[in-house]
């Protein structure tokens, strides 16, 4: 069979296998979290990215290690893809001392600065200006990194989105804006909230390139983001990429999903990004069914271990309450 897969050179066969496993890590992580919330074992709230694994894993695969990301309230996938340890993530959701934020941040505030993850964000559109600022540092200090800025379709109606695209454009900053269009801002269908076909078109208003891609297609995502990132790294400024995808679960933990039909959900489940990526890898002789199954099993095991780590971790002491307000 003729091989047709064209990818950036750093995406090796090994990397592709890792990515396949990573997508399962993301899915199992959020499935587990979903179960724990349903059982009342975790308090607070959370936003799950099941069904959107490709936009996190694919986009971040296009980066170099020194590149940075800003994430969103639906950020577990970005976090895992940028190299976070799933046990410390799970511990954070359990509110434990060993969590990424020592139990003070929870689902919406995990950051991993050493790995270049500047943090999830509980404010819709709140992280977009931060990405611009981080890109400014890269430019002023000549650090050579690019910032990948994730946000959703809902955030594209925030002022911070428009101000940030304009600012990044006039300053020619190395930032790539990634809009994960999962079709709904909480209950608001994108078709009712945005009066254009593609959010990517908004790039034109700011004099930067914009492109809409299939957000469940790993190969297309990796290639598109890679080109945008390397273009930004070369000093050619920012761009906007829209990834059309779908969140399988509700907005957060209590969501009856009255705003959409079960038929629509079924249609999107048939476009499962993990299944599609597996088919590509098998077709390209990169994976066998057996290997794919093993990788999936390894991911499941890692998440099970993460849960054990979290459950066995201590609660933070109230003595730590006043710590870390100021540096």
């Amino acid at each position: 069979m003729e091989k047709t897969l064209t990818l950036p050179s750093h995406i090796t066969t090994e990397k592709l296998k890792d990515l396949y496993k990573q997508m399962w890590l993301i899915r199992y992580f959020d499935e587990k979290v979903d179960q724990f919330f349903a059982k009342g074992m975790i308090h607070g709230t959370t936003h799950l990215c099941v069904g959107q694994e490709a936009s996190a894993a694919g986009a971040i695969a296009a980066l170099q290690d020194k590149d940075k990301i800003t994430s969103t309230h639906r950020g577990h996938g970005h976090c895992i893809a940028k190299g976070a340890e799933t046990d410390r993530m799970m511990a954070e959701l359990f509110g434990r001392e060993t969590g990424y934020c020592k139990g003070k941040g929870g689902s919406m505030h995990i950051a991993d600065l050493e790995k270049g993850n500047l943090g999830a964000n509980g404010i819709v559109g709140g992280g977009i200006p931060l990405a611009v600022g981080a890109a400014l540092t890269s430019k002023m200090k000549k650090e050579g990194y690019v910032v990948l800025c994730f946000f959703g379709d809902g955030a594209s109606n925030e002022g911070s989105f428009h101000e940030s695209l304009n600012l990044a454009s006039v300053w020619d900053l190395p930032v790539v804006f990634v809009c994960e269009n999962n079709q709904y801002g909480m209950s608001g269908p994108v078709k009712e909230m945005v009066n254009i076909e593609n959010i990517a078109e908004r790039a034109g208003s700011y004099g930067i390139p914009g492109k809409a891609v299939d957000g469940n297609d790993m190969v297309e995502i990796i290639n598109t983001v890679y080109d945008a990132v390397e273009n930004a790294r070369s000093g050619n400024g920012p761009s906007l990429i829209e990834m059309k995808t779908y969140r399988w679960k509700g907005h957060s933990k209590s969501d009856a999903k009255k705003y959409r039909t079960r038929e629509e959900e079924k249609e999107w489940r048939e476009k499962d990004p993990i299944q599609r990526f597996k088919e590509v890898l098998i077709e390209e002789d990169i994976l066998t069914e057996e290997q794919a199954k093993n990788l999936q099993e390894e991911a499941k095991q890692e998440i099970d271990d993460a849960v054990k780590f979290a459950e066995n971790s201590p609660e933070p002491s109230t003595d730590t309450l006043l710590e870390d307000v100021y540096a």
Binding site: T70, P129, G133, L136, S160, L167
Partner: peptide, 13 residues
């Protein structure tokens, strides 16, 4: 909003 956030992001990095 963008310049305030830009300052925050630059400071953080």
């Amino acid at each position: 909003a963008a310049i305030a956030g830009g300052a925050v992001g630059a400071a953080l990095t």
